[in-house]
Design a protein around this nucleic acid. Structure first.
Lengths: 338, 338
DNA sequence: AATTTTTATCGAACCGTTTCGATAAAGTTG
DNA sequence: CAACTTTATCGAAACGGTTCGATAAAAATT
């Protein structure tokens, strides 16, 4: 069925090793020979068997995208993940790498699975999304010298990674909060992501820093933690409406934001006249009613940079953490406090 | 670094072939020998090199998930894709297959890419989401005898596939429409997906069939086509409000539905009192305000069944198209016409 | 007891590449 | 022109598994 390099060599009238050299643009091949080999390859519709090449060179040219938490929530987290994967895919395509999806339903399953993946040498490196505080599997990676790059700052307990890509999440939360403070809001509800993610920690810092900077008191009941789902955003607001007072909400996840907006509607709160809302950028933010003020954390860029970083590692370069700058888009969901 | 099967064989005091037989649960290996080999493998932390095994057996144990259209929209299409991938991933995991992501930004890029993927034998089979009407790459697949399964009914021009998985989309649209008709609605706006997808065709059929069955006239201006985005759902309703009359909307995509709901809010139309809405099921449908009546097309199941079908193909079994049944969830967004 | 069958193990070949040392031809130098 | 260097090509040995035919030991049959 498929032609092998032997067939190509025979047809071109050269040895297998010369054919290989010609096909891989190695030096010391005469232009005529190279042309003959390429011609033969074309005629036979030859494509090198990826598996055989991998075995020979010891590289699979595949990287894994690891989603430690169950696929469910991470994927659901609005189009963040979608954009992220697009960026990763783009970078991989540029260097002819392919992307394999690795996930584990439960956190405890990861270590043995990781062991298998790594020892069986099925991928050259790992891209790890949303590192959480209890990552036991990094030991496995470290021990086997497989490069890995985090998407999201890893916790301080992990120091052995090749690099990571993230936003400056302190600043992200700071900017969002400050924007509202400057509009005169004094009671700002901050709906954070789950504390198992490092960015939730950083954003808390940013939120408090912004309040401090403007001499506003921190109210513990205005800082809540929620899963990155429509449901959780909805429930928080549904529960808090009436019981605590706030005139603005920072909710840095589109799905949560959607839930928030719907819960506000249910309670008859108008955005932005009753409550101002700022969220993270996504396709629909501009088209919601009202259009939402958002901070764009550039997920495509995050993915792209992370993949490029990993590929640079694989090429033997050393890398340093990379911070993707965020931008702020003011729309109609934030207005001065009444 | 990594232990090879030779190391295991040596430590267990057997030949390489015996070690292989023992590790792969082949017959004619004494329990003691097997135990010794397994013990040695454990001690050396041996895991078979995936590449080497692939080369030897001629199978990569990887399947590709192909997203022919640009990643952008398909991924964005609400959590359908998320659920789909979870189902696929589950089925793959059960048989130790891994999943590699294949996409092409532009449709025209696919054929040459497909040629490379297929001839280089990097995956054992393909899962193809959302087949559209102009799929040139199936010829490549067919020619090389690589099995492929569609998610979504392929167009009639394609007859050579191993199998496909889909809903009964005629019935999906029929049920949604009939539900509204039975509530007394006579002017039902049907927001369809892009006509390049076969399901859009099927749903049109179902919509018209339901109208016919209840003696209602078909109004061309009430059947519109839109991309599967928040924006498109929003724009359609924003444009049509006022110019044409309708008291109900069937919009079988959550993102579009979200846009629809927001456009209705903008125009001061209350759901369901002014306009009834039915959509496809997703996490947030139940929590929207009001909670949306939805048809559950079971994306997880679609993915799971599709992957299982492909794996059965790879095992040499013959397969037949599989229809995943949908269910109907009545909530608050549909009420009798005023 | 001699013959056949079954069972367990082994060595060698193979999968399709790349890589490396050897070699011959061509080019350069003294 | 002899001696060395460079250039182009080749054959064989990896890479790390699986598979298959051969073989010896054990069990069953005559």
């Amino acid at each position: 069925m498929g032609a092998t390099i032997r067939d190509v060599a025979k047809r071109a009238g050269v040895s297998v090793s010369t054919a290989s050299a010609a096909l891989n643009n190695k030096p010391f091949v005469t232009p005529e020979t190279r042309a003959r080999v390429l011609q033969a390859a074309l005629e036979l519709n030859y494509h090198a068997d990826r598996t055989a090449r991998s075995l020979a060179v010891g590289r699979t040219h595949q990287i894994a995208l690891l989603i430690p938490a169950s696929l469910e929530h991470t994927f659901s987290a609005s189009d963040f993940f979608n954009q992220l994967v697009r960026g990763i895919y783009k970078a991989c395509g540029q260097e002819d790498y392919s992307l394999v999806l690795y996930a584990a339903e439960r956190e405890t399953d990861i270590v043995p699975q990781m062991e298998r993946w790594v020892r069986s040498r099925s991928v050259d490196g790992f891209l790890i999304t949303h590192p959480t505080w209890g990552m036991l599997y990094v030991d496995v990676l470290e021990e086997s010298h497989v490069p890995y790059v985090f998407i999201g700052r890893p916790p301080e307990t992990v120091t052995t990674f090749a690099g990571y890509v993230d936003n400056d999440n302190v600043q992200v939360a700071y900017d969002a909060t400050e924007h509202l403070v400057e509009l005169g809001h004094q009671h700002i509800l901050f709906i954070n992501g789950p504390s198992r993610y490092t960015y939730a920690h950083d954003r808390t810092v940013g939120y408090r820093k912004a309040l401090d900077a403007h001499g506003l008191p921190f109210q513990a009941e205005l800082l809540v933690e929620a899963e990155l789902t429509f449901v959780d955003g909805y429930r928080i607001v549904d529960r808090l409406c009436g019981s605590v007072t706030f005139t603005a909400i920072v909710v840095l996840n589109p799905m949560q934001a959607l839930g928030v907006v719907h819960a506000l509607a249910k309670h008859g709160c108008k955005v932005p006249t009753d409550v101002a809302v700022v969220t993270t950028e996504c396709e629909m933010a501009a088209y919601m009613y009202p259009p939402l003020t958002a901070v764009d954390i550039r997920p495509y860029q995050l993915g792209y940079e992370a993949a490029r970083m990993l590929l640079r590692c694989l090429a033997g370069e050393t890398v340093a953490p990379h911070i993707v700058p965020h931008t702020f888009v003011v729309r109609d969901s934030t207005s001065p406090v009444r």
